[in-house]
Design a protein around this nucleic acid. Structure first.
Lengths: 340, 340
DNA sequence: CTGAAAGCGCTAACAT
DNA sequence: ATGTTAGCGCTTTCAG
């Protein structure tokens, strides 16, 4: 059995004995239609299993597709999942559907994905920019009225709205919390690549907190990791140093899991830890994990509402919205610093 | 400045001084084209920032859109994130892009979402069926050649491929592990609604393990929770019983977080726990959490490859693929049962 | 190698 | 209240 063609508007019209336009009117509640016609049309639609072809409609109507294109680095990272959920919740009221794909933080994949979204004429484009990606090619689209939003990190080559967390201030506060509990040897386990915006900002926050406390910056206390395994190894490496850190700051949620896992494995409860980004079981750990929590929901909502405002014609200049992080003290940052 | 129209093929053609078809040929590497024409066309495309309108193309070509529609209950649940990542990885080689939306486990939202996907002529439809949803309306699409796959739970009203975890066997093994360590009072904290397929299956596994051990089924030991807070309350409730459980089985990852959080809060380390579905920090808990892990990656891959096979013309009858779970013993299941 | 005409499924604009 | 015509942006078909 060959894949038989899907029924079209014309098929429905023929079935009922009316014109295509009449069917269109009934389905879109455009113009008037007699009760009887309406009923017959609806019946035929159900009988044939007719499903209007949205692509054909959009092409005729000329407007953008009622979709939002979202590019994230990793669909499996719960942080981006939470952000995506928030975006979806916000745009759904406007009848917009989320299209979501992952770039794996690869500029080429990001480009391929955005091109696909653009070719589908999404109404809104929200991108977590990959490291090394250039976004100049989006300029003409933005000029043409397409809202383009950078999320979590600023983009390169295009002046447009950006929504970011208060990475620097958040990291500063987290590290200051450790300093306040007497620590002077503070390790920083950041993510990769080194050029990643969030990493740079958080590292800057770390350094400013050290500076405030007159603690010299020691490069050997800064290590990097791309995934949880790396982070475990990096943690172990730090703790093997001749003059090891007594406290650790995790640059993101994945790294945090690595640190926590490694400390648990090696039964090191004496090391103080503060992590950037909350983890689901943070409060159940021993000690409970103190974190600088990002507000994923607000990040998503801010991105979505900003985009919707643009869609509604707001042509004011590009904004950068900084969403506050929040230090949640749970205990792991208060492990006593050893006496000097 | 009004939202100026995006350039079309015709615009490019006019710019170069050739016909639209020639531009089309160059871009799709269809038919021949002189080197000079090709160059001029490409230059004009770049200059104008032309982006082919995929909707117009698809409508003319008649085939489905190169997208995969995925409906999950919650974008923020890491389990579905992991599954989505796996699906995307699998279909990307075929040039397919993932479209993803959440149903919030609401049949109406699920229906609206699938209708949107169908209206966009997705190449593949993968659905985590909501409780109470009927899928008879998908029958004609499937007959017409659209691969429809049910994921995580079977669908209702349509015979098609389903990919599920070995819920019953997995739960059985998890509970048996607790029984093997001497427990006779075993609590089950399941998810809601009660009719949820995975809940029923996992509860059945729980009951079969009890039966094997000649432990009578005690309804008062079975409670339900929809989110983490509920699960915490449910756990507390179980532990307040006159003859409380000495071991708990968590019906899913969210519930597991609730149980773990509540036990941590009340400092009850004596309660044995096994959870269905792995958690990221399971190994860092004290005791480390023993789980019945689902293979999210394999679930996603199986769904995607099955769909691709169908897309390639496989018309054999609907299959149900059961992906094995794996008991990962980490310690929390071995808390000693109190002496009788 | 290139172009002209027709048409995909639908709706805007005008009929009637 | 309904039908007709034209055309969205693209590709297929058939001619050169």
């Amino acid at each position: 059995m060959a894949a038989n063609r899907r029924p079209t508007l014309t098929d429905v019209a023929r079935e009922v004995g009316v014109s295509a336009k009449t069917v269109s009117r009934v389905l879109n509640e455009d113009g008037p239609a007699s009760a009887q016609t309406r009923e017959q049309v609806l019946a035929a639609v159900a009988r044939l299993g007719f499903q209007p072809n949205l692509m054909a409609r959009n092409i005729r109507v000329g407007g953008p597709d009622t979709t939002v294109g979202l590019v994230v680095p990793d669909l499996g990272n719960p942080f981006f999942g939470a952000v995506a959920r928030s975006i979806e919740d916000t745009v759904r009221d406007r009848g917009l559907t989320l299209l979501m794909g992952s770039s794996a933080d690869d500029p080429e994949r990001e480009r391929a994905l955005t091109d696909k979204f653009l070719a589908r004429r999404v109404s809104i484009l929200i991108v977590v920019p990959s490291v090394g990606a250039d976004h100049a090619h989006l300029k003409s689209h933005r000029t043409a009225g397409l809202p383009v939003i950078f999320l979590d990190r600023p983009g390169v080559g295009l002046a447009t709205d950006s929504i970011v967390s208060s990475n620097r201030a958040g990291a500063h506060d987290g590290v200051a919390h450790l300093v306040a509990h007497g620590h002077r040897r503070l390790g920083f386990v950041g993510d990769l690549p080194l050029k990643l915006y969030t990493r740079r900002e958080r590292l800057a926050g770390y350094r400013s907190a050290l500076q405030e406390a007159d603690i010299p910056y020691d490069r050997s206390l800064v290590v990097n990791a791309h995934d949880q395994r790396d982070a475990e190894a990096a943690t172990a490496q730090l703790l093997r140093l001749p003059d090891p850190p007594t406290a650790l700051f995790a640059g993101n949620n994945i790294v945090a899991m690595g640190i926590v896992a490694e400390l648990a494995r090696s039964k090191r409860k004496d090391v103080a830890v503060v992590a950037f980004d909350d983890l689901s079981l943070a409060e159940a750990l021993e000690p409970a994990l103190t974190v600088v929590a990002q507000d994923a929901e607000e990040l998503g909502r801010a991105a979505a509402t900003t985009a919707l405002t643009r869609l509604d014609g707001d042509r004011t200049r590009a904004r950068t919205i900084t969403v506050s992080t929040r230090l949640i003290v749970r205990g792991s940052g208060e492990q006593a610093a050893p006496k000097a």
